[in-house]
Design a binder for these strands. Structure first.
Lengths: 349, 349
DNA sequence: TTGTATGCGTTATCAA
DNA sequence: TTGATAACGCATACAA
């Protein structure tokens, strides 16, 4: 029953012009008369003609498609994608659409071929990498892409040597702002829950900001207050449990992600500690849920809309062989209830 | 600097075979000798050869790509995508990958051309529609797709006349289970917050399940307890506020989505009502946050992994012109803290 | 089992 | 401003 797809030749015949003219007219070329253009468009509408993008992509250099490769950070199968990426993906889809790019999305596959298929098989003009996993895992892939000359951008991971372009938040500044806020509300024994190893540059930078704020305030850095944790809620629970089990005194927790902070608050609650009266908590990301938690979570906001623009503009520049600059977006402290103090007052300062 | 992409001809030359044999060998055709296959694969690896998918797609019938079109249900620009779709999208990406499909994702565009570009321009073999907006808006598009014979599936919207295939949850059963549970914990004045109009079949079905449970229990249906609301948190807040402002007594709220329920709980809390002591709350979806709220939200779980399989298997069948059946996934009641176990006091001002 | 020849539907390069 | 013609890189019918 499926009707035969009309081709540009059919349009040409109906409009009484050559196929070349059809192609030009549909591409809004200025080299075609208004009259011809009108007739072509009319014929195209009449036959419901749509360009076969595959033929176009085969013939032309750019294929106007971006690939987004997402690593499965969360191990539970329930929700393979880090919720922080939802608004980022949304913004990417929106902005990419505005720029005329199609967006191909894929989850990290275990296969060796993962990623190499994308650019080099001409599925996409460039690749955006999203994920917080240890990026050492990808070095092989990154080198491959570099060798064949496929453009790619990474979100978040600062100082990745092989990357021509990295877009991320200024995590050090974010860590500093969070810790500074905790100091401002009078906390001194501030625990850090998260990764601090160089393999996870974005989290390590948050930790560095934390250290800078403490040092600046004359508060000694106590490694007993540093809890290793990745990014999921359960890790946050485990982290706080460990602190309490080891009888390490603390009056605040800065978590490297909101998910960790949610877990931390849950654990504190279970142990009978009140947030923020007994312990203040700050997270990182500003997930949409933060305002619905009780207490509502004070956190560091990452601007995902600006991030999407920077990622796509940067990747576009790489694709077009234009110069690019790494960008660090400024994060923002969002004060809610989980730290105590008077939110209104603090915000005013 | 970008090196020239090798083609199958280069491989053929290096392997000492014809281009046809290369094509066959890479497609795992049984019509090629082990020896030739080995030489081809070796040459391909040596030259880092990757098929140009565009050429392949131009030549062959199937293009092994699915398009997912997401409507922007939430109007706030902060987060254009309904969070319920995150695990669904994750599962779709995972399963599609396993089945050898690429996945193209796009947000609803205002343009008339929205959607028609996908199948008919041969970007994808079929389209998956995700969204809770009034689907009347799409009738024009749906008819277009049907006329040109492009396969498409919708999530959630039962009884869409023009659809050849609909996959969704059994919303009526879900609504029934939720309401039944509220009755079981002793509630009688149960408000319904959500859409009940036929334009939103999935929500209307949840409302129908609600009515069935009430009727079955001999509880009269009171239209004063029915609050019109779409799906966002703010709508949940507004809904509960309206009930309270109008002095309508109620001891429970069944919300058509978890987002609504989160708003409802927030509003109740602000008004000094305790959940679940004064008012029980049940949501729908089982967002990942439900277990982190306080009180943790009792809700109806939709199985997104099974949904993704059903959507993709169904769409595959449509693509291959095989017979298909609409599917209603069984939802599941997830009991947490927001309903309490004991009959509470009636909340009236 | 292999190879030859052809075509998929465009865009790009010419010449008119 | 237009049109004929040649790619683009692969898959397939057909011949060997």
């Amino acid at each position: 029953m499926k009707q035969q797809r009309p081709t540009s030749l059919d349009i040409a015949a109906l409009a009484g012009v050559s196929q070349t003219t059809v192609s030009r007219a549909l591409a809004q070329s200025p080299l075609v008369s208004e009259d011809a253009k009108r007739r072509v468009l009319e014929a195209a509408r009449a036959l419901r003609y749509k360009v076969d993008v595959n033929a176009r992509k085969l013939r032309s250099k750019k294929i106007h498609t971006l690939a987004v490769l997402i690593s499965e950070d969360l191990d539970n199968s329930e929700n393979p994608i880090n919720p922080f990426f939802l608004p980022l993906i949304g913004s990417i889809l929106k902005y990419a659409g505005q720029q005329g790019y199609d967006v191909l999305i894929s989850l990290q596959q275990k296969s060796d071929e993962w990623g190499t298929d994308y650019g080099f098989s001409r599925r996409a003009d460039g690749i955006i990498f999203l994920g917080c996993k240890d990026f050492q895992v990808y070095t092989h892939l990154f080198e491959y892409l570099n060798e064949v000359g496929d453009p790619w951008v990474v979100w978040g991971v600062n100082r990745l040597d092989c990357a021509r372009l990295v877009i991320g938040s200024d995590n050090e500044a974010g860590g500093y702002m969070a810790t500074r806020h905790l100091l401002d509300v009078g906390r001194r024994r501030i625990a850090f829950v998260g990764k601090h190893q160089p393999e996870h540059p974005e989290f390590r930078d948050r930790y560095r900001g934390y250290c800078r704020a403490l040092t600046e305030a004359g508060v000694p850095i106590d490694d007993a207050l540093r809890v290793d944790a990745f990014l999921a809620r359960e890790d946050g629970v485990a982290g706080v449990d460990r602190l309490l089990d080891n009888n390490i005194p603390f009056d605040a927790v800065f978590c490297a992600t909101d998910l960790l902070a949610m877990g931390a608050m849950q654990a504190l609650h279970r142990r009978g500690l009140h947030v923020p009266n007994d312990v203040s908590v700050v997270g990182f990301d500003d997930l949409w849920v933060c305002s619905s938690l009780s207490p509502a979570l004070t956190t560091i906001r990452q601007d995902t809309e600006a991030a999407a623009r920077a990622l796509i503009d940067g990747l576009s520049a790489l694709i077009d062989d234009e110069p690019v600059l790494d960008t660090q977006m400024a994060p923002k402290l969002v004060i809610r209830e989980s730290c105590g103090g008077l939110p209104g007052l603090m915000a005013a300062q």
